[in-house]
Nucleic acid binder design. Sequence first.
DNA 1: GCGATTTGGGAAAAGGTTTTCTCAAAGGAG
DNA 2: CTCCTTTGAGAAAACCTTTTCCCAAATCGC
Lengths: 351, 351
Amino acid sequence: MSSDASPAPAPVTLREVAASAGVSVATASKALNGQGRMTAETRERIRETARRLGFRPNSLAQSLLRRRSFTVGLLTNDTYGRFSLPLMSGVSDALVDAGVSVFLCNVEDDTRLAQLHVEAMLDKRVDGIIATGKRIDRHLPVDLANLRIPVIYAFTQPDPGAIAFVSDDSGGARLAVEHFCRLGRKRIAHVTGPASFAVVHERAQAYRDVLTEKGLPVMEPLLGSWSEAWGHEAVKKLFDGQGKLSKTGSEKPDAVFCGNDQIARGVIDALRERGLGVPDDVGVIGFDNWQIVAEATRPPLTSVDMNLAALGREAGLTLLSLVGGQPAAPGIRKLPCRLVVRQSCGRPPDG
Amino acid sequence: MSSDASPAPAPVTLREVAASAGVSVATASKALNGQGRMTAETRERIRETARRLGFRPNSLAQSLLRRRSFTVGLLTNDTYGRFSLPLMSGVSDALVDAGVSVFLCNVEDDTRLAQLHVEAMLDKRVDGIIATGKRIDRHLPVDLANLRIPVIYAFTQPDPGAIAFVSDDSGGARLAVEHFCRLGRKRIAHVTGPASFAVVHERAQAYRDVLTEKGLPVMEPLLGSWSEAWGHEAVKKLFDGQGKLSKTGSEKPDAVFCGNDQIARGVIDALRERGLGVPDDVGVIGFDNWQIVAEATRPPLTSVDMNLAALGREAGLTLLSLVGGQPAAPGIRKLPCRLVVRQSCGRPPDG
DNA sequence: GCGATTTGGGAAAAGGTTTTCTCAAAGGAG
DNA sequence: CTCCTTTGAGAAAACCTTTTCCCAAATCGC
């Protein structure tokens, strides 16, 4: 802790810099911004003075004049934050270097609260808004169309004609299932969340597609909830019932692709409880790559990562270019997922 | 989605309102703010005009004049966000009704980044800063002393002479251990995190104090890591070794107070694996009340909640009153925890 | 009916910066 | 030595709102 005990350094204005350097504020401004014409000597003298006085321009004054506040709003309804947080920090990281700060607006599912936040942001003249949520297929509880400032949607349902970034869930699912195929797994099951989620269907379709392409048997995806408990229960259904596949003996799955990491955790625990080894007997892959869960699972869980931080960065940068006047085509951009391989899926045959 | 397709409503200024109402801007301003003297009729006419035009004052201009931006900065290094998020939303909720917006600044443990954020906030004339972290006993990587604006510390190590809010970990631990006592548990163990954390010692001391007060045997707390794996291992130590207590037969613990919910989860799983019933044979209480873990545990985990959202609200309100010029005594304020009773600790004898 | 007070409302400064104009001095061409 | 161009720097407007001060008209007291 450096405690020079300087009590309260008064903010120094451009006027004071100018006075101290013996020039007008106009000249001082131009000197510091590299504008206008003056002797190199004058310019340097002013700069030195500013440095000495610790001058920092007042952003409010600048913003007022430039009609640009170097500020954006981040709207989210993901209270728990599992998805929002990496996304938020991606946005923030992308913007901080451009000198842009981020207003955090947690709106829950409360329309009044959301309206309040949006109005506060508009009053504060944010340059743009990023809307983000906990589900790709649900709107935030507020209308952001026709807002006179650019809006980017990230990991939430966009308005028609808007620009949105979402994860490529279909691609993510392919990653997982194809990985199982490469490892030589033949009977791959899919245990996932409730039918009310769009991603459930998207991933299930990708699952079916890959298996069909590879000529492997397709088992009907098991829909349930996003919980460990459902993972347990699903194992019962998969391994207790009469085999879903027609062949002899080996009718039970040798791999389970799960809709999220909690389900996967439940599946792995349930498998262990009935004496099945993971990954030797059954491989398991999760979704979300929720690190703290994936790493606590034994064995550590291979999982599909949606790259939410990258998604946030992309959204931030796009908003920035929109604010800067660059045009951008509306539409939904899907960003690729990546597979984080740990130990629950088995090793490739070749090592 | 209401799409009135109004293309881009231009922001309307006070000047336009005044012109439209046939008065000067001075009068218009006074009419809208309830200042000055004028006929009720004039005032109402101006207000009506403002309403009709959808006038909203430009915050930047107001801030410039009032030297108050109605904006605060929230600094955090809790990337993962388990602790930060409830805290952040508490802060935000407390402030949004006062029209104050919150800049989110994720600084990781990067001094450069932190400096960058702090300077951006100062340039933007935030009214104050709330510093928060993932550990009570560690500083953020930046010096916030002598900043000319008020700073409040919440759930992070404060500078000397500052105002800070932290959870009362000692009280939280008492809550848990006393609850066990009330339930008639006699041999209560404590499994917790690494010695490098201040809270580990604080809670352990409270644990010892309560047991001593009640005349129950004190077992030396088991320090390890904050992980499920350590919970497993600790059960081995507690239940395999020769009894730590001198009495006959019943030397094994009948209750385990855990330093966090992940440890508790590991403990419960390990107990089940060795055929011990929770809560019948052994009661378990966790710490943090990390809902998603506590509820996924079987049986659902009783846990100490640090009330972080309330802590955030308190911090936000205090900062507000500081900004408003109210004096406040420096020092660390400990806010009480609460025990969230689920099913892992057993029921009171009286039902 | 005249001076003193109240009333209703406007002019202008302030807040801090940027940018456009303007202008005097200096330099160059002839 | 005069005219034109360049150079260096300042004055002022603009951004939008709030607040202080001021003034004219109306009201009041007598």
